[in-house]
Amino acid sequence: MFEAQLVEGKTFKAIIEAIKDLVVDCNLDCSEEEVAIQSMDSAHVSLVAVRLSASAFSNYRCDRPNSLGINTANMSKILKMLGKDDSITFKAEDESPDSLTMLFEGGKSTIADFELKLMDIETEQLGIPDTPYQCTIQMRADEFQRIVRDLQVLGDTCTISCGKEGVRFSVTGAIGNGNILVRSSDEDKDKVTINMEEPVELNFALRYLNFFTKATPLAENVVISMSPDVPVVVEYPIEEFGHVKFYLAPKIEED
């Protein structure tokens, strides 16, 4: 039996909204410790890793590990009916359940229950090593969203270069080019922390970064980690309970 109640149901709704454009179908991997999602986009150049620890839920019971295959768009449709302050209770049988039951409870008077049909989904679980990155940038999530959104007007590919002066986001396009430099700052309102061992410069598809920023409502800050020739990690921490991490392969120019 899997049963878990999330008091702030809007958190789960925001997670699904953040990943639904990248991932069509995915498994909710439920275990004693956590609920996790790992899935790649259809082109396999980006990866989403979501983790919600058991402590994020007010009641949590998972008798045995289970994978619940969902279509994110269908899940999103159901979550549209979630009230702003509603809690969500998930329920599923242990033995290959056909559906996931979700109870939306708002206050004392309203209880809505929905059943989402589950799917058999074959997924490739990648082993992601916990390696240190040469550059780590922590900045306001909404500021990162604004930068990505603004630069999209100019072109498709964004160069993120982390150097001594700060982090530079550059785009070159048909109508012109643009640079946005973000410097380290200790101001509480716009705190930017840059940890750098070596300068790093990588190119990324802006459209993907734009989809990543749909997770902005989940966290105040975003953490961007880069090392040469490896995927960038764009992490949105969900308080101390978990995270949504996006990995994106850099664009490497062929000789």
């Binding site: 679980q125 990648l126 392969a249």
Partner: peptide
Amino acid sequence: MKSMSSFFGAAVKTKK
């Protein structure tokens, strides 16, 4: 852009 599986460990297929 390379596939994610070319960066990370060997893929393990899981099926419900």
